[in-house]
């Protein structure tokens, strides 16, 4: 539940985040806050910097400058050298769950072992407890009975749900989803979105990069439209997605309206 204090002090706060690749700017001074239990959806044309922003929050990419605060830990970038390295960097990442476009399950491990890997290797949880936890999470994403399957034996939708369970196993403070349905066959998208919708309803704090506009409208508390490395428009889902003020947001969304994606929802 969102307490009064949490609302004033978001659990994730990104301030003036900049990421350049050499001379090329990918993210130009983005600020955003995500409250506990809130679902924030990032949309925007490809190359707009939304995935880069997400990867910066996870420190899979080192931001060029700006600050990121997760919980009580604040990190400032751009002071020369890397802000976090080694064990401290690993510890930071272990608090944030990440789900990738291409699943990236560990192919030499079963579904169960994939989900157990984080708790056992990183958190030093004992194997039996980790196995129980993993079984519970696989059941939660609708994959009870798939524990002994290897990733190669799973469909894309099943693999992506294992990947979600694997991230959840670390009990992260926030979950990041990076276009997690883009690599899936259309008929498999629904099962993954259903799991994410359930997580949102359970009060998981989430930042979601997606092209599924209808889904965004269903799940998002807050929508950010990014364009050219900056946030062009933000607000409640119904405002940004249904009555966008910014002409660029309108132009971007019109493609989806034409495709009929919002006909039922709008």
């Amino acid at each position: 539940m969102t307490g009064e204090d949490d609302r004033h002090r978001p659990m994730i706060a990104v301030t003036d985040l900049v990421k350049n690749y050499g001379p090329v700017p990918a993210v130009r001074g983005v600020s955003l806050g995500v409250a506990r239990g809130e679902v924030v959806v990032l949309i925007g044309p490809s190359g707009c910097g939304k995935s880069t922003l997400l990867r910066c929050v996870h420190l899979l990419e080192e931001p060029t400058s700006g600050t990121i605060r997760v919980g009580a830990q604040q990190i400032t970038f751009g002071g020369g050298g890397k802000a976090l390295v080694g064990r401290k960097l690993a510890a930071y990442r272990s608090r944030i769950g990440m789900v990738f476009q291409h699943f990236e399950l560990f192919p030499h491990m079963t579904a169960l072992q994939n989900v157990m890997e984080g708790p056992v290797t990183v958190k030093r949880m004992n194997r039996r407890a980790a196995a129980d936890l993993a079984r519970g999470l696989l059941a939660k994403v609708g994959l009870a009975g798939k524990e002994p399957s290897y990733p190669a034996q799973l469909s894309g939708g099943q693999a992506q749900r294992v990947a979600i369970a694997r991230a959840l196993a670390m009990s992260p403070e926030v979950m990041l989803f990076d276009e997690v349905t883009s690599a899936l066959d259309p008929e498999l998208v629904g099962e993954v979105l259903a799991v994410m919708r359930q997580l949102g309803e359970d009060g998981t704090t989430m930042i979601v990069v997606t092209h599924e506009i209808t889904f965004a409208r269903d799940i998002a508390d807050h929508v950010l439209f990014m364009d050219g490395g900056a946030i062009a428009e933000h607000g409640p889902a119904d405002e940004v997605l249904v009555r966008p003020a910014n002409p660029r947001t309108r132009a971007f969304l019109s493609r989806f309206h034409h495709a009929g994606a919002l006909r039922s929802a709008g």
């Binding site: 899979l60 690993a90 608090r95 990440m98 990738f100 984080g118």
Partner: peptide, 12 residues
């Protein structure tokens, strides 16, 4: 991607 998945779990 495999490196990133491992890093994402907090592995050194």
């Amino acid at each position: 991607g495999q490196w990133q998945a491992g890093r994402a779990l907090g592995m050194t």
